[in-house]
């Protein structure tokens, strides 16, 4: 757990130091990718709670989920389908489900 927090802090520091920013046109894709990443991280936490955490599944899931989500939204945008909201809704639901599972685990443990 402590490693996760340290990593998060290092990443945030990097993000604030580096002078890049997302062009307005791509901010939608980026936010969907971010949502997918968050979903994977919470999924990983839940798996760790259940004791079936696999770092390979976790690391591949993190990158492929983010890229695929952004790609799908991009394609949907080209085809005139607003997959943006669908992706946000789906990932949001999953994040809350995972949060719920984590909470249950903690409540049962203590």
């Amino acid at each position: 757990m402590i490693y996760a927090v340290i990593g998060l802090l290092i990443g945030m520091l990097l993000g604030f130091v580096v002078p890049w920013s997302i062009p307005v046109g791509y901010s939608g894709l980026f936010s969907v990718a971010l949502m997918a990443s968050l979903d994977t991280v919470f999924g990983g936490l839940k798996a760790a709670c259940n004791g079936n955490f696999d770092d390979r599944v976790f690391i591949t899931g993190f990158f492929t989920n983010a890229l695929l989500a952004a790609f799908l939204v991009y394609v949907g945008d080209r085809l005139g389908m607003d997959l943006y909201y669908v992706a946000l809704l789906a990932f949001g639901l999953r994040i809350f489900n995972n949060l719920g599972a984590i909470r249950h685990y903690w409540l049962q443990k203590h």
Binding site: A4, I6, G11, M12
Partner: peptide, 12 residues
């Protein structure tokens, strides 16, 4: 993964 996630969060 957490470094990447933090980076993305900060950029966004």
């Amino acid at each position: 993964v957490c470094i990447v996630l933090g980076f993305m969060l900060a950029i966004q």
